[in-house]
């Protein structure tokens, strides 16, 4: 049984206009997304801004109300709930199972609470007794390699990297079954970024952490994720195990994304093709395949018929009419 199964998830925002606030259109921020996360697995959700990856993560956290679809989440070995349809009142006791690591370590810690209290807060809210809380905070500080003295210090005393460690400790406090990490290293400096990536790798090994890793940086994703789902304009265009996806992408958009990342190696200079055009508007996506206006391989069919995400074997999925015939280039 998978830990999380998302099926045909949709989140639409109505565009209203006029005196009567009539709905004149919809922003299809997320438009039919399906994927799963197995126990102990890290799935990366990648894509450019506006592709809907953050919206998906907020739907799973039920920070947003879902338009339609199912989010089946295993709250224990035997029990599964559908987070998409559960009333808000019933969501609250389940929150402890899904925790989040935020992007901005300066905004995510309450400046008026000491680090010890920040980490203990989820425990307190969920009724863990004081003595147990104290031990758990000590354990968590050690886990994220922070000194115990941090407990009685305020966030303003720490650098971005240290704050991010505190944020991670808080997310792990309740032993959540799933951690949603929303761009957890993109606000950090290179040297600190490496420390946090290593910490996340450690935690995956030591705790068997299951993670939804939302990111736009394909280099970071290659280091931390087991599988990758690529999103474009509200839909998943390709899912594959990380290494396979980077070496041999099946979707032209994945190829374009990989080609666009500048490798830290001057000898590879100028060897890449740059995708033309801009990301489509989710309020007004092009007909057929949303990527066809930018796709160098597009044929007439792509302009009319929207491809579905279909399995191609060995855990891979792609939504491209020409996936079978194209020979796309990855990075290696």
């Amino acid at each position: 049984m998978n830990l999380l199964e998302v099926q045909d998830l949709k989140k639409h925002y109505p565009i209203r206009a006029g005196l009567m606030r009539r709905e004149v259109g919809r922003v299809r921020a997320v438009d039919g997304v399906s994927f799963h996360i197995a126990q102990g697995e890290t799935l990366a959700l990648v894509g450019e801004s506006g592709c809907g990856k953050t919206t998906v993560s907020r739907c799973i956290l039920r920070a947003l109300t879902v338009t339609s679809g199912a989010i089946r989440f295993a709250t224990s070995e035997t029990e599964t709930v559908d987070l998409a349809t559960l009333p808000k009142r019933q969501v609250r006791p389940l929150r402890r199972h899904i925790q989040m690591i935020f992007q901005d370590p300066y905004a995510s810690l309450n400046p008026r609470m000491m680090v010890g209290d920040i980490i203990a807060e989820p425990l307190k809210v969920n009724g863990v007794p004081a003595a147990e809380r104290r031990d758990r905070v000590a354990e968590l500080l050690e886990l994220v390699q922070m000194p115990q003295s941090a407990r009685i210090r305020f966030p303003h005393a720490f650098s971005g990297g240290q704050r991010q460690r505190v944020g991670i400790a808080r997310a792990l406090a309740l032993n959540p079954r799933l951690v949603v990490a929303d761009e957890p290293v993109s606000a950090l400096d290179v040297s600190v970024q490496a420390q946090i990536i290593n910490l996340l790798l450690d935690l995956q090994d030591r705790l068997g952490l299951s993670m939804l890793f939302v990111a736009h940086d394909l280099s970071v994703v290659r280091h931390v994720s087991d599988r990758v789902a690529v999103m474009y304009v509200g839909r998943i265009v390709e899912v594959a195990p990380t290494d396979t996806l980077y070496r041999a992408p099946l979707h032209p958009y994945t190829e374009a994304l990989l080609a666009a990342v500048p490798a830290p190696d001057p000898s590879r200079r100028g060897r890449r093709r740059v995708a033309q055009g801009e990301v489509a508007d989710p309020a007004n996506p092009p007909p057929g395949c949303a990527f066809h206006p930018r796709c160098p391989y597009a044929v007439d069919r792509c302009r009319i018929e929207r491809p579905e995400l279909t399995p191609t074997g060995s855990g891979r999925y792609v939504s491209c009419h020409r996936a079978a015939e194209l020979d796309l280039v990855g990075v290696r």
């Binding site: 650098s159 971005g160 990297g161 240290q162 400096d189 290179v190 040297s191 600190v192 970024q193 490496a194 420390q195 990536i197 290593n198 790798l201 995956q204 940086d217 394909l218 280099s219 970071v220 290659r222 280091h223 931390v224 087991d226 990380t242 290494d243 980077y246 990989l258 990342v261 490798a263 830290p264 190696d265 990075v331 290696r332």
Partner: peptide, 25 residues
Amino acid sequence: RALLRAVPSILATPRQRLSTIGGAV
């Protein structure tokens, strides 16, 4: 040298750790 080793690479192997520089600027 340290900076170059700390940069995540699109050419990484799965779960590849990065070498880090201790502390912060």
